[in-house]
Amino acid sequence: MTPRRSVENALLAGPLVLFLLAVLGFPTLLSLIYGFSETSFQTLTTPQFSGLKNFRDVAADPAFWQAAWFSLRFGAITALLQCGLGLALAVYLAPLARRHGWTVAILIIPMIVAPAMMGLMYRLVLHEFAGPVPHYLYSWFGWSPSFLGPANVFKTVVVAETLQWTPFAFLLFLTACQSIPEDLREAAAVDGTRPWRLFWKIELPLMMPTVFVALFIRFIDGFRVFDNIYTLVGAGPGGSTTSMSIYIYETFLRRGEIGKALAAAILLFATAFVVLAAAPRLLRGRSA
């Protein structure tokens, strides 16, 4: 690269770099300062350096581990459910989607709704006295499960998340399924391969990289869930539906423990960074 070209590149990339530094760099720097300081709303401009105290407080807080366990379970279960359902739908509906593209538009409608709105909608729909679902269950069977009661609330938020985001997985798998060369399927059919075996031995192995990417994206999204759970049931009785994001939000704004909240956010970021760094290596390993 010539020096002249190098200067041109720097000039062209400069505004973007400055923009990113302003938008991402400044909050990150501030979070790091506050994460290592004793800070409250009264001392935002005069944080006192406190070393690793906030990190020790976070590690000693049972609520943090409860939130981490909730997020881990929620992220893993919803990712598996969404990818399982999305894959089944994509393979089953691929011929229909090929002929009538508009059916895909209908199937992805839940994805368009803002998660917070989805939470509010379920809060109304599942309310025992105002919601249509319990109303009809009572009318027809004289009984309705308490969808948002302590015994069912985890299942309910898992189902709500799955219903909203399965279309995302479906879309990825449909694209992957449609990109498989048709002559492979035709050759298998000529050899007398049955549909299940065709899927299991040819289509699924070719779609595996997409499956891993989808699982990964959905797990990350599930792990950092906030809006729909917070608007639906809040932090839950005894903190039973407190995800990591809800924990950080409540620690920051409700309890005013800014340093501790940001220490938890830094830990979450570090964990996500390690996973993100390891994921491509894992994927490359699978492809090889």
Binding site: F129, A130, S146, P150, V153
Partner: peptide, 21 residues
Amino acid sequence: TPPDSTSYEYAEANAAYASGQ
């Protein structure tokens, strides 16, 4: 009290009473 009243705040509790149940 309704089993899901652990998720109720002002509006939901009012809706329960208003339903006549």
